[in-house]
Amino acid sequence: MSKRGFGDKIKLSSYDDMFGVESSESVDAIKGEAQIVDIPLSELHTFENHPFRVVDDESMEEMVESIKEYGVLVPAIARPRREGGYELISGHRRKRASELAGKETMPVMVKDCDDDEATVIMVDANIQRDDILISERAKAYQMKYEAMKHQGGGNGRSLATMSEEMGESQKTIQRLICIASLNENLLHMVDEKRLSLGAGLDLSFIKPEEQEIVYAVITDMKVSLSGEQTLKIKEASKKGYFNEDFLRDYLSEKKPKPRKVVFNQKKLDDYFTPDMSNEDIEKVIFQLLDEWKSKGEV
């Protein structure tokens, strides 16, 4: 990509779009109570349980080229660590791009905040990105929900506030928070659409060790799970009879294929008058079949 072309892109794109950071209003609010300094990349550490991927993809390549030419345009956000250095709250992708660009430092807004406040800032700074996986969104919502509860919001108020801030219904947020409790293998299946959201939600209610059994069995049997099957698994877990043998037997059951017979209209016209309804025709056909069966010809 030419430097001119990338420069044009920067003029046309907002900083939020390019770097996936919070709104300028939020940044300004943090700036008012934080100090901006250049910090060595080696002193910037990943946020604990950070739910968002940092991937060396095309978007990262573009960010690297931008940083090589213009530097980091929007400071990251971090807080001091007791162990030394700083914990990144927002800016993990910018740090990676700076490393790839050969930089040794990057501008950072250093803010003193507790775990809950840092978690809320971290989630809000990343959640609006377009490339977020279902598992990332689910884990982020779960982390923010727990942080808001610790801050004294209460369950209902936390969900209501999150719904308003995220632009999603409380029901959707609740479902995603539940899905976050799936083990990594099943979450990966949801991300890849090999397991539906509804099926993932059902499995999120069973015990962690039972989730391990589910993944091991469906992987070994090379089968996918329908919503009907995950509902049955959830029911078996709730009633206490779920185990590997039950699951293998249940998934091995051969269900009869549904049968549907469609009659040719022209052929039916040879036997039935035009004034007869579909119900009348069906009634006559089954009467004839019953007579045929009674004669032992079936």
Rank of each mutant, 00 (worst) to 15 (best):
37 V>G: 00
24 S>L: 14
185 N>I: 08
191 D>Q: 11
181 S>N: 13
59 S>D: 14
214 V>T: 04
7 G>Y: 13
81 R>V: 00
15 Y>V: 08
191 D>L: 10
41 L>H: 09
132 I>T: 09
271 Y>G: 00
211 Q>F: 12
232 K>F: 08
148 M>S: 00
118 A>R: 07
214 V>L: 03
10 I>G: 02
141 Y>N: 12
166 M>S: 02
104 E>A: 04
95 K>C: 01
138 A>S: 15
205 F>E: 08
290 D>F: 09
297 E>V: 09
249 D>C: 08
60 M>Y: 07
236 A>W: 07
19 F>A: 06
45 H>P: 01
242 F>S: 03
146 E>I: 06
69 E>R: 07
252 S>V: 06
197 L>Y: 04
187 L>K: 15
187 L>G: 14
273 T>K: 14
13 S>Q: 10
275 D>Q: 13
107 P>Q: 08
207 K>Y: 12
226 S>R: 01
122 M>E: 01
132 I>N: 14
74 V>Y: 00
266 K>M: 07
41 L>S: 10
243 N>P: 13
210 E>V: 03
29 A>P: 01
140 A>S: 10
236 A>Q: 02
32 G>T: 04
177 I>K: 02
212 E>L: 15
269 D>Q: 15
269 D>H: 06
31 K>E: 08
104 E>H: 09
210 E>D: 14
248 R>E: 13
30 I>F: 06
88 L>S: 09
15 Y>R: 14
122 M>H: 10
26 S>W: 06
172 T>C: 05
39 I>W: 02
246 F>M: 02
109 M>W: 13
180 A>N: 10
274 P>W: 02
75 P>I: 04
250 Y>D: 04
218 I>K: 00
286 F>Q: 04
245 D>G: 03
276 M>C: 10
26 S>D: 12
252 S>P: 14
243 N>E: 05
263 F>A: 11
158 S>Y: 02
220 D>P: 04
121 I>N: 00
113 C>P: 01
98 S>N: 12
119 T>F: 05
20 G>H: 09
9 K>E: 01
180 A>S: 15
72 V>E: 10
70 Y>E: 12
50 H>L: 02
87 E>W: 05
89 I>G: 03
286 F>I: 13
207 K>I: 04
53 R>M: 06
21 V>N: 08
53 R>Y: 04
164 E>F: 11
153 G>T: 05
18 M>W: 04
201 L>S: 01
285 I>G: 13
285 I>C: 11
128 Q>P: 00
102 G>V: 11
230 T>R: 05
187 L>H: 12
59 S>P: 02
194 R>L: 06
292 W>T: 09
168 E>H: 13
261 V>M: 13
103 K>Q: 15
84 G>Y: 09
22 E>L: 14
199 A>Y: 08
75 P>R: 08
